[in-house]
Amino acid sequence: MDTIQDHSHSPSPARRLRAAALRAPAFAALCALLALAPAHAAGPAEVAAADRAAWPRPIDSPAAFDRASRAEILAFAHELALSEPLDDAALAQRLRLKQVDRASVDKIRARWWRRLSDNYRLAARACAPREPFCAPAGDAAALRALATDFGAAPQAEFAAWRADAARFHRIYLDEQLRLAALFPRTSSEIDTYSAQEIDGSELPDRQFLLTFDDGPTAPGGNTDTLLRTLREHKLNATFFVLGERLQPRLKSEAAAKTYAGMCVASHGWEHQSHSRWPQWQDSVIRSSALAREHAGALYRPLFRPPYGQRRADSGEFFRAQGLRVALWTIDSQDWNAKVGAGEVQGRLLSLMLLWRHGTILFHDIHDKARVALPWLLRQTRGAGVRWVDCNTYPAP
């Protein structure tokens, strides 16, 4: 439950403030405070979920991964190019927002074009003669021109995929544009405030870091199932734990035993946005101390803010605590009631093909992560994907 869209599990900070205003005599003062504070917008009406069964070929080799990657890059870039002529009013209407931060949107779009261009070149390095999705594009401008014309499948066998990809990437683009349009007024994983914050975008090609938030569950729950899956595949991951969940779990088993072979970091004492929460610093300090004390050598000095929301001026605080803010680049949406486990699977594989590296966000408290992870590992077997050792990220 880590993106801006997910506030359904508890009243939003704005609603709590309104309720307090109705009960308190200082109604006018609280209303004035609320008006000055950044609002949490409702999430998007749709969540992007891809149908990987529409892709007609297996992804069982590096060449097959690259072919599918080129296709996803062109499909997303096509939607991105189509969105660029929209003025602020039209974009706000499309995203169901009152206003957009144009500077933030322009910055994120420029970054996307750079990454897409780099990724396309990497995916096209070994193009064989007559390979599909292999038209040359040496820079971002060339890719934009190529993607703008990418309206139909190059061959009949890809027609079903192209239709599904158009829907998927339009919805996914709007998810991301929404975050960009709200940043920095409402912070999220869409951008970092400084080089001190990390999100996995700097990882090498085909390398992905697995991360899990909001746990642990009670003994025998989803956390233990996911840990067993990771160990069976000789993989590890970073688990960003909540202090209020870890503390009762410690009564039955030491954290060093529960998470043996993994990495443990803090997600806060409770799952509250930092945007207007007076106790956010205490939450960071308490949860990090608990994880450090009980995870021992497994502990990593990282902090993942709930919903990805942190204050723009919080960098000095985290430095003083010896912590780095750790965000993500690929959201599985496993927390979202709008998507099922199969849809989470398709979404993840399509986004791995699109971005080609990064940090994947799961939640070990949800069943969908337990189902999606083994599927994802099977689908990428032989594709040249490397799952990053959490002990090596970030590099010392």
Rank of each mutant, 00 (worst) to 15 (best):
S117T: 03
V47E: 02
S69H: 05
W112H: 09
G43T: 02
P56C: 08
A81I: 01
R57F: 14
A53R: 15
S104H: 04
R109F: 02
R114V: 10
W112T: 07
H78A: 09
D60Q: 13
Q99G: 11
L33C: 10
R111N: 11
A110K: 09
D87H: 06
A92K: 07
C31E: 13
S61M: 12
C31H: 10
D101G: 05
V105H: 01
Q99T: 15
D118M: 08
V105K: 03
R57L: 15
L34F: 01
Q99K: 11
E46M: 05
L95Q: 01
L86R: 14
A71T: 03
L34N: 06
S83G: 01
A35Q: 11
A90S: 11
L116K: 06
A45S: 13
R109C: 05
A50T: 01
R96A: 14
A81G: 08
A37I: 03
A64E: 06
A64T: 08
P58F: 06
D66Y: 07
W55R: 07
L34A: 14
D106K: 05
A77W: 04
A92H: 05
S104W: 07
E46Y: 04
R70D: 08
V105D: 01
I108V: 15
R67W: 03
L91H: 01
D87R: 06
P38N: 09
